[in-house]
């Protein structure tokens, strides 16, 4: 009973000072609110468990690193973390389920459009153009092998026959081509993701 009297702020500062049991009290006090909130967004028990766990891992790390400031309240802060992780989850799956509760059947909840949208199509084009320019910067022998392998889909056996070098040499050129491209990408901080 006495545990209920201790405020969240007090429990947080006790926890930061090393009292592990304070965390248990905090979790017991707020688990239902946080878990229910997550479930109300993702509608999946297993995903909710994962997000709940990740939320508290983040909470623990922040508290132990001493980065928590008692500006707001503990629960809204944890809810905000949970909310962000829910968004991350949907971003990862690049889809957002819609629940309109109207009772109508919505065809788009069972079929999805996997085609890239206009923005992603443009980004894809830019990324591919960037990669092409990187390839153009490679030494001729490496470029030749890379283009045959990646764009013409030839096997290393075919490449070695076409270029008149051994398979091992072709493999080595491919390896150096990738290493060189990675070096350039890292050096210039080029982002090649969609």
């Amino acid at each position: 009973m006495q545990k209920e009297l201790i405020s969240d702020a007090q429990l947080v500062s006790n926890y930061i000072r090393g009292e592990e049991s304070a965390l248990e009290v905090l979790i017991t006090r707020h688990k239902q609110r946080i878990y229910s909130f997550i479930y109300s967004k993702v509608f999946d028990r297993d995903i909710s468990e994962d997000i709940f766990q990740d939320t508290f891992i983040k909470v623990i790390r922040t508290l132990k690193r001493g980065k928590y400031n008692e500006e707001g309240k503990f629960l809204p802060w944890v809810m905000r973390i949970a909310h962000n992780l829910v968004i991350d989850h949907f971003r990862k799956n690049s889809r957002m389920p819609k629940f309109d509760n109207s009772g109508d059947f919505n065809i788009f909840s069972v079929i999805s459009d996997n085609a890239l949208n206009a923005e992603k199509t443009i980004i894809k084009g830019q990324v591919e153009a960037d990669v092409r320019r990187l390839i153009d910067e490679l030494p001729e022998d490496q470029k030749e092998v890379l283009v045959m392998r990646m764009y013409k889909d030839m096997s290393f056996k075919e490449i070695s026959e076409r270029t008149g070098v051994s398979i091992n040499t072709a493999l080595g050129r491919m390896r150096y081509a990738l290493i060189n491209m990675r070096k350039v990408i890292e050096k210039h901080n080029i982002v090649l993701t969609n």
Binding site: F52, I60, K64
Partner: peptide, 25 residues
């Protein structure tokens, strides 16, 4: 479906508490 009263599994809670005990900065 707005009124949810759900709790996480005991294993999840115990994992979090063990993680907290194991982590030191």
């Amino acid at each position: 479906k707005s009124d949810f009263k759900l709790n996480p599994k005991d294993e999840t809670i115990s994992f979090i508490l063990n993680y907290s005990k194991a982590l030191s900065v």
